[in-house]
Design a binder for these strands. Structure first.
Lengths: 190, 190
DNA sequence: CCACCTTCCGAACGATCGTTAGTTTTCGCA
DNA sequence: TGCGAAAACTAACGATCGTTCGGAAGGTGG
């Protein structure tokens, strides 16, 4: 992929995140690239190609983030690592993360199907950590792991709306982890 | 507001939630109403009016839900009540909730400003419960209440993506509350 | 029965949409 | 210096967009 084509993908991610896929015209993209709109078709076959590229890049980034989480070791640490990794992707690639979370649904046909499968797979990997934690006895035996995973994934998926680009997310991820683990009631002071 | 006009607002909420504001044309709305598209202008002045109506209805619904939470009594019970109330609105008025959470950003001008203020006010009311819980000693003294509120609000705001319309949300809200309060580590079995 | 008001029709408006085509410019490399 | 490929320009296409307007139904209350 040429440098120019790559620049176009990045511009598309930015504008799609800012104004939405249907709210961004080919003319908007051309203007942001400093070019006539017809010129963009030297790089793409259709506007939908750009959405597809950005969405796939998001899938790749989040799966790569989970790949950095070890397969073994204390589940608590792995959950912490997964939250750190996810939030880091959101903060460092906010435009792409926004498209991954919010704009993907304008994909059509088999591209959409393929994306949904990848997204589901991602959430399954995430969920697996919580199930494993319960099964291995590192989390409480009566844990509703699906609900716990849903709570964690909600925070992860909603983060694009309030995370500042480039912010340090390690502390934040750890605070989320601490809350999820021990709650806010505080047995010590009860 | 006439019955027909009300029907139009409901149709707009449904299509905006399904295909997005910019992905829904006046022609789509007219077809769903079984009418020529020009006919819609007997009821509205512009397409933006419909987005504004749905967004305001969302604001009203969520604020009304919080109004049902008592001002006094155990904070833990009030947080549970707030989560129940919020999730009930999402499940019972899914289209409106979707527009409230996702499509509002296509509002323009002072309408947008007014909406943002109402949304911020809602989140402040929600956050206040957690702060109060810490201050009154019902939650742990070292609680990061902003992060705790963020975690709860994330689950609330993300719910529109997975909640089935009309689902019973009381149990779900209580499971979230239990997790937030006591966490998933489980001191008893540690 | 008439007057009125809501609702809708049918046709058209200028603007903008995504896309195509033929041509020209730009630029790295032989 | 000249060649070939990549990139951009210019102009236009048909389709669709949101919106306007004059007139015609349709029903309700006086």
């Amino acid at each position: 992929m040429s440098a120019r084509r790559n620049e176009l993908t990045r511009t598309a991610a930015r504008l799609f995140a800012e104004k939405g896929y249907h709210g961004t015209s080919i003319g908007d993209l051309a203007e942001a690239m400093g070019v006539q709109k017809g010129s963009l078709y030297a790089h793409i076959e259709s506007k939908a190609d750009l959405l597809w590229d950005v969405a796939r890049e998001g899938s790749a980034a989040f799966h790569a983030a989970l790949d950095s989480v070890p397969d073994e070791g204390p589940v608590v640490e792995r959950i912490r690592a997964a939250l750190r990794a996810h939030l880091r992707v959101v903060a460092e690639q906010l435009d792409i993360a926004t498209v991954f979370v919010r704009e993907w649904r304008y994909l059509e046909g088999e591209r959409r199907d393929e994306f949904v499968a990848e997204r589901r797979r991602y959430e399954e990997r995430f969920r697996g950590l919580f199930r494993e934690g319960r099964e291995l006895g590192e989390l409480r035996a009566d844990l509703d792991d699906a609900t716990a995973a849903l709570l964690a994934l909600s925070a992860a998926n909603w983060a694009y709306t309030w995370l500042r680009p480039g912010a340090d997310t390690t502390d934040l991820a750890d605070r989320f982890t601490a809350l999820l683990l021990d709650g806010m009631r505080g047995y010590a002071t009860r």
